[in-house]
Amino acid sequence: MALNTPQITPTKKITVRAIGEELPRGDYQRCPQCDMLFSLPEINSHQSAYCPRCQAKIRDGRDWSLTRLAAMAFTMLLLMPFAWGEPLLHIWLLGIRIDANVMQGIWQMTKQGDAITGSMVFFCVIGAPLILVTSIAYLWFGNRLGMNLRPVLLMLERLKEWVMLDIYLVGIGVASIKVQDYAHIQAGVGLFSFVALVILTTVTLSHLNVEELWERFYPQRPATRRDEKLRVCLGCHFTGYPDQRGRCPRCHIPLRLRRRHSLQKCWAALLASIVLLLPANLLPISIIYLNGGRQEDTILSGIMSLASSNIAVAGIVFIASILVPFTKVIVMFTLLLSIHFKCQQGLRTRILLLRMVTWIGRWSMLDLFVISLTMSLINRDQILAFTMGPAAFYFGAAVILTILAVEWLDSRLLWDAHESGNARFDD
């Protein structure tokens, strides 16, 4: 018995066209964080690309023209004298008006014999932002004059995390709450300039795509075929072959399989920071003279006294001054041990922890910024005066060393310790 099946006739004509040209192939790229070699397709503007294995951002879609970056830099340069030299806060102490600005706080630190601690604050609040705007201006002028731009481009990517104007702005709020127990506070004209400078700096850093600047100024022929001998440069993120001198053909720094002496430098910085954190938390970090009496505060006791007036601000200072430094030390110690013992479990967790400490590390400088600003506000000789204690130097040095330890660690070593050939990683 035959089955009668109805015929289905399409209502619209289906047209099949042959592909007349070869589909576009992607360029081969190595991930600078996990060293995976993959094919990167062509990316349009405002599109980002991520590593298929570790999800690290390979290409950032946010990109401004150099002219727009230069305009932002010149605007920031105009704001800087007002943000640093004009009063941020006014207080009335014992019937006398006192003005506080950024430069005055750094000068008070240096004047009291601790120039190293003052230079830490100076670099993060004044030096690094000033280098940022002058570097962008150098790129703008240098591109037109045919100057060598490689050193500036190499420095810009590392400079971003040292620009800490946003953290200093939080420190202004913390210092205001600490001082309000002794005097009446009012915002100064410099505060508005400083807030504007923070906003412009944040926007500029978020749109400063150094890798795209490398592509514009020093374009290189990408690798179009897969080759395990391809290496990625950690300076400019170019994937290719080393030249005859073993250097990256684009930025001219040595092109090595792994960062040289990464573990040794990381261990040295980490152990030194552990040693410095002990006096930083045991010795007094601030000293207040009130009517001839002397009151010393460690980091913890200062947080407890701050909690009596504002528990939320005390929580912020606790996280930045105690929780973050010790968390960074514990995480980095764990990561280094996992590399030495070739741990194969929990790779995803370790990668996330490394990215976390990379982002939060700079916030530990908050305590030094609060001390710097408070020193310029309260300084009335023996009637009422505020000065920093010996722990300030140890704390600042420990924070900087932990930042350097994270920067010096080559994250690809975590993958080397893991089993080879993993296309995915999980716990």
Results as ranks from 00 to 15, higher is better:
Cys233Asp: 01
Leu368Glu: 08
Gln33His: 13
His90Pro: 03
Phe425Ile: 15
Ile351Phe: 14
Lys12Gln: 09
Gln344Asn: 09
Glu407Asn: 14
Gln108Ala: 13
Gly302Phe: 01
Leu159Ala: 03
Leu89Pro: 00
Asn148Arg: 04
Phe341His: 11
Asn209Tyr: 05
Arg158Ser: 14
Met1Asn: 00
Ser376Trp: 05
Leu255Trp: 06
Leu230Ala: 10
Pro52Cys: 08
Gly240Ser: 14
Leu23Trp: 11
Leu208Ala: 15
Ser262Ile: 02
Met36Ser: 12
Val133His: 02
Arg348Met: 10
Met304Ile: 07
Phe74Asp: 03
Arg150Cys: 04
Ala268Ile: 02
Gly315Trp: 13
Arg231Val: 08
Gly396Met: 02
Asp60Ile: 08
Arg221Glu: 09
Ile131Trp: 01
Phe38Arg: 03
Cys34Leu: 00
Pro151Gln: 01
Leu89Ala: 05
Ile98Gly: 04
Val232Leu: 12
Arg17Ile: 05
Leu79Glu: 04
Arg424Ile: 14
Val152Cys: 13
Leu263Met: 13
Asp60Val: 10
Leu300Ala: 03
Ile274Leu: 10
Lys328Asp: 00
Trp415Phe: 11
Ser262Cys: 06
Gln29Arg: 15
Pro284Tyr: 04
Met72Phe: 02
Ile185Lys: 01
Arg362Pro: 06
Cys54Lys: 00
Ile58Val: 12
Arg68Glu: 06
Leu257Lys: 08
Ala100Thr: 11
Ile288Ser: 01
Arg30Glu: 02
Val163Arg: 03
Ser262His: 04
Asp367Ser: 00
Leu366Cys: 09
Ala73Trp: 15
Ala269Val: 04
Ala18His: 09
Lys265Phe: 01
Leu255Lys: 08
Leu23Ala: 12
Phe141Asn: 00
Val331Leu: 14
Pro254His: 02
Trp64Arg: 06
Pro81Met: 06
Gly61Met: 15
Val275Trp: 05
Gly246Ser: 08
Gly190Cys: 02
Val133Glu: 01
Glu211Arg: 13
Leu230Thr: 06
Leu78Arg: 00
Phe333Glu: 08
Gly315Ala: 13
Leu149Ala: 07
Asn4Ile: 15
Asp63Pro: 14
Ala268Tyr: 02
Met120Lys: 01
Met155Asn: 15
Ile403Ser: 04
Asp60His: 06
Pro242Met: 10
His418Met: 05
Asn148Phe: 03
Arg355Leu: 12
Tyr182Arg: 04
Leu145Lys: 04
Leu156Gln: 14
Leu401Gly: 05
Ser301Ala: 05
Phe82Leu: 10
Arg348Lys: 11
Gly346Ser: 09
Asp416Thr: 13
Thr298His: 10
Gln7Met: 14
Gly26Pro: 11
Gly302Ala: 06
Ile299Gly: 10
Asp181His: 02
Lys12Glu: 13
Glu157Trp: 14
Asn422Gly: 15
Asn291Tyr: 13
His46Ala: 12
Asn44Arg: 09
Lys342Ser: 10
Gln180Leu: 13
Leu77Gln: 09
Leu191Arg: 06
Gln344Glu: 15
His252Glu: 02
Ile351Val: 12
Leu69Arg: 06
Pro10Lys: 07
Pro24Met: 07
Glu296Asn: 15
Trp107Val: 03
Pro52His: 15
Ala175Pro: 03
Val179Pro: 14
Ala385Tyr: 04
Arg424Phe: 13
Ile126Pro: 11
Leu191Ile: 04
Phe333Asn: 08
Gly292Asp: 03
Leu66Arg: 05
Val16Glu: 13
Thr358Arg: 10
Gln29Met: 12
Leu208Gln: 10
Ile58Trp: 09
Gln29Ala: 09
Trp162Val: 01
Ala70Pro: 12
Ile274Trp: 09
Leu368Arg: 00
Gln104Leu: 08
Pro222Ile: 08
Leu169Ser: 02
Asp99Gln: 12
Gln186Phe: 07
Met120Ile: 08
Val324Thr: 09
Ala268Ser: 09
Ala175Asn: 11
Lys342Leu: 09
